[in-house]
């Protein structure tokens, strides 16, 4: 019996992942956004990060998402992009 190929239909949206190049390493002092995603004790972690960054001469912008369960709203993302050179945002838990 001949072995026939089986045709199936692609269940994905058929989009290639948009590969973005990594940004160049930062030199010198920078303005860095710290995003509080609103999980308990996230502020403790970010306070410590801010202290360490300030020691190295970086300016820090603190901002937060309205809720940890949803992606940051577009205007929050746009503001960070406009005002800061880099962002530190970490997953919770």
């Amino acid at each position: 019996m001949a072995l026939e190929n089986l045709e199936i239909l692609d269940p994905t949206p058929e989009r290639a992942a948009a590969g973005l190049p990594l940004a160049a390493p930062m030199r010198g002092e920078a303005r860095i956004a710290l995003v509080d995603i609103r999980k308990p004790r996230g502020d403790v972690f970010l306070d410590e990060l801010e202290r360490l960054l300030a020691q190295k001469g970086h300016a820090v912008e603190r901002t937060m998402k309205p809720t940890f369960t949803k992606p940051a709203p577009a205007d929050v993302r746009r503001e960070i992009a406009a005002r800061c050179d880099a962002i530190i945002e970490a997953l919770a838990d």
């Binding site: 001949a2 072995l3 026939e4 190929n5 089986l6 045709e7 199936i8 239909l9 692609d10 269940p11 994905t12 058929e14």
Partner: peptide
């Protein structure tokens, strides 16, 4: 949708696992 050819020598159930399209249980080839 894009047609995907599964070769005659491939087991379609294994091929769907290998392509990362299942939840860990076998799926019916679409």
């Amino acid at each position: 949708s894009r047609p995907i050819e599964i070769g005659g020598l491939e087991d379609p159930f294994e091929a769907l696992f290998d392509r990362g399209l299942t939840d860990g249980l076998p799926v019916v080839p679409p």
